[in-house]
């Protein structure tokens, strides 16, 4: 691998994330995937919203846009439609992608516009102080749920599948080698790709839920997840499955748009 320093804006390091924050491992795996695929930095646009997770865009030496909370996919859609030859990556927090940005998320999936949506799911609003998110889960503690959260959570994989995403996968920060492989598949997929990454926020989700330090939270990912269709899952249905759930070919939005332009221009030039 080329040095990781070729892909980052070194002047902003050490980064701002807390000790043990999983967002840094996502950054590392993403860079490794880009390096292994041999992608050119100049062909990549990273578009993010607002959140601890969204700060990842500031650290990579690609074309980057740091936009509005929940709206990264809307900005990314604009970029992709105007420059469809560029590869668009959209890292988002769980709140960013599925609370305020939930509508953008399902419609981008439905359109099947070619880009990679990475949901960095730490089950909390990290940046603003540990409020519960749509992914915290029933019974979990958060700054805004001191007596226990009564909201049920989304299953990001089921949601993305139902909304029409043509690539859907899940992994965790403990499973960094798998994360690299999944990101490589997602980056080369021709359509809307969703990668959910379970990541740790030791500062809020971990502390509020007495999950211990960052290594203990990784231990939790190891113990509570299993490859898709494993025997362990049959014995213990509460295990969370990891792997690629959907990878299908489906008409892609920018390609179809190009055809519409051609049809409309027929006989006019």
């Amino acid at each position: 691998m080329a040095s990781v320093k070729e892909y980052i804006r070194e002047r902003f390091f050490p980064h701002i994330w807390c000790p043990g924050c999983g967002h840094g491992t996502v950054l590392k795996s993403l860079i490794t995937a880009v390096d292994q695929l041999g992608l050119s930095k100049n062909d990549i646009v990273m578009v993010s919203g607002i959140g601890c997770s969204s700060r990842i865009a500031g650290y990579v030496d690609f074309h980057t846009l740091h936009t509005l909370h929940g709206r990264a996919l809307a900005f990314a859609t604009g970029v992709k439609l105007s420059k469809p030859q560029l590869r668009v990556m959209v890292p988002m927090g769980d709140g960013d992608a599925l609370a305020i940005g939930g509508n953008h998320f399902i419609h981008a999936a439905r359109r099947n516009i070619a880009m990679t949506a990475i949901v960095m799911n730490n089950r909390i609003y990290g940046m603003t102080g540990g409020q519960f998110s749509p992914l915290s889960g029933y019974g979990k503690a958060a700054t805004t749920a001191p007596y226990g959260n009564i909201d049920h959570d989304f299953d990001v994989v089921q949601l993305a599948k139902a909304a029409g995403a043509s690539f859907v996968a899940r992994t965790t920060t403990y499973h960094a080698p798998q994360m690299v492989e999944i990101l490589k598949q997602a980056f080369t997929h021709k359509g809307f790709a969703v990668v959910e990454i379970l990541t740790q926020c030791p500062t809020y989700f971990g502390r509020k839920n007495k999950m211990g330090e960052a290594p203990d939270m990784l231990e939790w990912f190891k113990e509570n997840t299993t490859p898709i269709g494993s025997q362990a899952k049959q014995k213990n249905p509460s295990l969370i499955e990891r792997g690629v759930f959907v990878a299908e070919e489906k008409a892609e939005y920018c390609t179809e748009y190009e055809k519409v332009v051609e049809r409309a221009m027929k006989g006019r030039e």
Binding site: F13, T173, A176, P177
Partner: peptide, 13 residues
């Protein structure tokens, strides 16, 4: 290289 891959601070090579 598992340490390098998991380090959230990109500090290990």
């Amino acid at each position: 290289r598992l340490c390098e891959m998991r380090c959230p601070d990109l500090s290990i090579t």
